[in-house]
Simulated assay, not measured.
Amino acid sequence: MGRWEPNARGRLEQAALELYIERGYEQTTVAEIAKRAGLTERTFFRHYADKREVLFAGAGALQELFVSAVAGAPGSAAPIEAVGAALEAAAVVLQERRDSARRRQTVIAANAELRERELIKLASLSAALADALRQRGVADTAAGLAAEAGIAVFKIAFERWLDETGRRSLAQLIQESLDELRDVTAGRPSAER
């Protein structure tokens, strides 16, 4: 094995996901992940703190995308519109990863520890969105409400996207969920889409 291996991080993620699906998260070891990827355990730990973090490696990049999209929204945009821009920016990035996202969610759904970690990730994304809104001058309470509502919209749209057979894009489902949220908050009945 050479000293430098191209795309070690991607290979580790793929190997881990394959093993988690085949054997289960609990039964899979770091040594097995590294071996499947053709790398060493030491290389694994250069990239990840533990085997759980392989599934959450993209959280930081997603948070940065959310924050920059909120910051880049037009100054006249309402808080929920700025959050919507962030969700749509994420949809563009995630759209090509549906199969991988489905497999990842299957692994997470099967393990309480991973479900808890997913909730922590969503809470961190919400806090980052709220901070980005505050930077735009949005009042504290409004920023928190818009961020939490945005994460709820994202979560629901994401779950619908994974369950569908490809009829609608994640961006379409996010927009539909935002429209449903507007209907709910305006007191209008919402037809199931």
Score class of each variant (00 low, 15 high):
Lys51Thr: 01
Glu53Leu: 03
Glu53Tyr: 10
Glu53Pro: 04
Val54Ile: 00
Ala57Asn: 10
Ala59Arg: 11
Phe66Cys: 05
Val67Trp: 14
Val67His: 09
Ala71Arg: 15
Ala71Val: 06
Gly72Leu: 01
Ala73Arg: 10
Ser76Glu: 15
Ser76Ile: 04
Pro79Asn: 05
Ile80Ala: 10
Ile80Gln: 07
Glu81Met: 02
Ala82Ile: 07
Val83Gln: 03
Val83Asp: 06
Gly84Asp: 03
Ala86Ser: 13
Ala86Lys: 06
Ala89Arg: 07
Ala90Phe: 02
Ala90Leu: 09
Ala91Cys: 10
Val92Met: 07
Val92Leu: 13
Gln95Asp: 12
Glu96Met: 11
Arg97Lys: 14
Arg97Ser: 08
Ser100Leu: 12
Ala101Thr: 06
Arg102Ile: 08
Arg104His: 06
Arg104Lys: 11
Gln105His: 04
Ala112Gln: 13
Arg115Ala: 11
Glu116Asp: 09
Ile120Ser: 01
Lys121Ile: 03
Lys121Cys: 02
Ala123Arg: 14
Ser126Met: 02
Ala128Met: 04
Ala130Asn: 05
Arg134Leu: 02
Arg134Cys: 03
Gln135Met: 04
Arg136Glu: 03
Val138Gly: 06
Thr141Glu: 15
Thr141Tyr: 10
Gly144Glu: 00
Ala147Thr: 05
Phe154Gln: 00
Phe154Thr: 00
Ile156Phe: 13
Ala157Trp: 03
Ala157Gly: 05
Trp161His: 05
Asp163Val: 07
Glu164Arg: 14
Gly166Phe: 01
Arg168His: 15
Arg168Gly: 04
Ala171Ser: 15
Ala171Cys: 03
Ile174Trp: 00
Ile174Tyr: 00
Glu176Met: 09
Leu178Arg: 09
Glu180Arg: 12
Arg182Ser: 10
Val184Ala: 14
Arg188Ser: 04
Ala191Cys: 04
